[in-house]
Design a protein around this nucleic acid. Structure first.
Lengths: 152, 152
DNA sequence: CACCAATTTAGAATTATTCTAAATCTTGAC
DNA sequence: GTCAAGATTTAGAATAATTCTAAATTGGTG
């Protein structure tokens, strides 16, 4: 059980600026493409945890010919490179988040709003299955946000 | 394998639930139906975090006329009654889990296996948005299980 | 038993994601 | 710069996951 405890200390992926974008893709075994740049820009621009569909619509504004499949391809590449996180909050569409800091998602089951909250570096100690190699944590907290709570 | 961390730990709530099943539904504003009983039995029977589709197939064995929509309806009712949890681990189908203890899911991104791990009762209080009323936590830990790690 | 509302049903519809095959790019070698 | 090889994009089809629909059935209540 000695190695059975583990903190929320993740393989921290530091936020890097746009200059390293291409390099970042290469390291992950991907090529730079304008589509990936545009999709990444869109996700960075409005950090509201959009779905692939929403990202598709937003990306079309600056790149009208981009296709659905490409958006998925780009998002997959970005996720694999550690530039974007995939967030599963409820049934239905997956959402995406460019905040690579250690954080969890507070999700309002009433209005659907998502709040990022940074995790304390020394937060919780969790037991884990023997030999399990942790890649990352996905922590979602469901409930009702202050706004919605007021309305009831 | 360290017993107690890998195994499915029966909680008091679960043990009682069969006798109280109907009552539990009523409290949640739902009626007892044989379909709900069958679906619940199926989920309790093999605790491998099945998808709605898998539950549909398994339930058909004892109730061949049950429909797809009914399985979704039943699962939704069970989730709302606090008899079953909905688990979102990756893109694609939602999974279901009858373990109502406070626990997290270790998910092997390689083979897809899911391990339930009980959370320490004294888990740290996490910072949260002001006024947010917490309903429940969904904690998933992604990585590679011992089996899969060995193969590489 | 009779009533009303909840539930079930089959199948259609919708939503989310993946696949396909041809066209087009990106990269590295020359 | 040109070229080839392989990665990527594209539109649209295909599949998967979930929700909707409207009619039939059922459960609980009086």
């Amino acid at each position: 059980m000695a190695d059975g405890y583990f903190g929320f200390v993740m393989s921290g992926v530091e936020r890097k600026s746009n200059e390293n974008f291409s390099e970042r893709l290469n390291t992950g075994g991907f090529r730079f493409t304008p589509q990936r740049q545009h999709v990444y820009d869109v996700v960075l621009q409005k950090r509201d945890h959009p779905t692939a569909e929403e990202i598709f619509i937003r990306t079309k504004k600056t790149m009208p010919k981009i296709s659905h499949a490409t958006v998925y391809n780009c998002l997959d590449a970005l996720v694999k490179c550690g530039l974007v996180r995939q967030v599963q909050l409820e049934r239905g569409a997956t959402r995406f988040c460019p905040n690579m800091e250690e954080h969890c998602h507070y999700y309002c089951d009433s209005c659907g709003e998502v709040f990022d909250v940074a995790l304390p570096t020394d937060s919780t100690v969790m037991p884990r299955p023997k030999g399990f190699k942790v890649d990352h944590y996905d922590i979602a907290v469901h409930g009702i946000c202050a706004e919605c709570a007021k309305k009831k």
